[in-house]
Amino acid sequence: MARIIVVTSGKGGVGKTTTSASISTGLAKRGYKTVVVDFDVGLRNLDLIMNCERRVVYDFVNVIQGDATLNQALIRDKRVNTLYILPTSQTREKEALTPEGVEKVIKELSETFDYVICDSPAGIEHGALMALYHADEAIITTNPEVSSVRDSDRILGILQSKSWRAESGLEPVKEHLLLTRYNPDRVERGEMLSVADVEEILAIPLLGVIPESQVVLNASNQGLPVILEEDSDAGQAYDDAVARLLGEEREQRFLTSQKKGFFSRIFKGG
């Protein structure tokens, strides 16, 4: 049985899709058979970040509606051969993800994969609920600012009450905090919440801190999961996060501004 992990946040634009792409790539690189599912119907982005947008024939909604089989819709990644992408539909509504249809697809994926990564849309409506419903674990993607933290808190509450695990009275969804777009300089100047602040407010275990970096944007634009930028801070930070997700102990890095060479390292990756 696969572990089902939702990448969610409540707030938009915090890095859910970037995180989904990198976490799934990182798991697959370690040999786990991994699929990443785009739940953001109508705002399809995952295929762009995974650089497979030109290979989409059938999508998640086609599979739910019985127009295609799962095998027809799954796209195999060209860089990591244990990684698959299930793209979503750009033309349908979120309601096309029926609870029964989603359950059927997730069940079928669980039979053949080790990890199913669900890339949630922003918000707390139907699409987000569908993405988190089957989760065993949740990666709460949060930016170090007040509104993002508040929305993450909200989505944590929903995970505790509306997920399948909560409804069935099972062991609760395992929660991980992933702090993205972290800028130690701005934290020092008091313009951003610190890791300690966010941890204190949300009170869930820290999976990792991804430094704010030009590399992330450049990688997205090139259709490259940033974890494959192995020399970059952000890529290494995602690699650490994947290792911790698998139970490895790794010290937190990139929490303080590196005086020398910090900017040169950031821009080198571009």
């Binding site: 808190d153 909200r154 509450g157 929903i158 505790q160 407010i201 009170a203």
Partner: peptide, 25 residues
């Protein structure tokens, strides 16, 4: 467990004891 933003916890008869944060919202 923490009472998260958007959640409501009610003790209609007696006391309510929370061994965790009660979050904004």
């Amino acid at each position: 467990q923490p009472v998260r933003s958007g959640q409501q916890v009610f003790a209609p008869e007696g006391d309510l004891i929370i061994l965790a944060p009660v979050q904004a919202g």
